[in-house]
Simulated scan of single mutants.
Amino acid sequence: MAKVCFGMITSLDGFISDRHGKLDKLYKSFKPNDEINEVMANTGAVVMGRRTYDMTDDPDAYADDYEFQVPIFVLTHHPPAKHPKENDNLSITFVTDGIETAVRKAKAAAGERDVVVLGADVGQQALRANLVDELQIAIAPLLLGTGTRMFDHLEGLEIHLEKIRAIETDEQMEVYYKVNRQGTD
């Protein structure tokens, strides 16, 4: 069964975008090695929020050059009027009835491969709903000071983690944690 992984690149001070909502400063240092590429290749479906989906100027570009050529499930209150281009590997489904439905559909599409959850708000929703099996955090060598925090709006929620892997590249560190559900009570 698919494992659900909330994964993002963050600045050392915990921001996944700068104060203007841009990601380019964070991804400047992102240079995956063979080990990271292997983890990415095990992705069978992606769940993202509408804000993350809308970060591209052209939604049809997902079918042309998105790093994950897999089914994408976009959690939204309002699907776009025009459905974006798809291809043989990448389909886009807009889910309007909650994070649980989006993750359930993504797991069915992923089969034995992983479901990657992208976007701060959607990731936080998945954590609150106890749907995340693993955190995959790439730490960029940067302090942004302000922006969107990866772990905001989790008041009253205590999540215990177990480090299962760390990958070091020339520019950054990626740390993988198993979510310990027994420690969440």
Rank of each mutant, 00 (worst) to 15 (best):
T93P: 09
N33S: 05
Y177V: 00
M48P: 05
G147M: 07
K25L: 13
E158C: 06
D58S: 14
G111Y: 10
I99S: 04
D65E: 12
V116H: 10
F30N: 10
I139V: 15
K105P: 01
S91M: 11
N37S: 06
G49K: 10
T43N: 03
T10K: 00
T148D: 02
N130H: 14
F30T: 02
T10I: 07
L144P: 10
Y27K: 05
E171D: 15
E35V: 14
G44V: 02
M150T: 09
T52W: 05
L12Q: 12
Q69T: 00
A61N: 08
A120Q: 03
N130R: 15
L157M: 04
V175I: 15
V175P: 03
E168C: 11
K178H: 12
A138N: 14
E38D: 14
Y176C: 06
K163P: 10
V103A: 08
F73Q: 07
D18R: 06
L144R: 08
F68V: 04
V47I: 11
A138T: 11
G98I: 12
D58L: 04
P80Q: 12
G147N: 02
K22E: 14
T169L: 11
I99W: 03
V47T: 12
M8H: 06
T101Y: 02
G119K: 09
V74S: 09
V39I: 14
Y27A: 00
Q124E: 13
L23H: 03
N37R: 15
Q182F: 07
P79T: 04
L26G: 07
N87K: 02
L118A: 13
F15D: 05
Q172S: 13
I167C: 11
D60M: 13
A126F: 02
A63V: 12
L144K: 01
P79Q: 05
A63Y: 07
V115D: 00
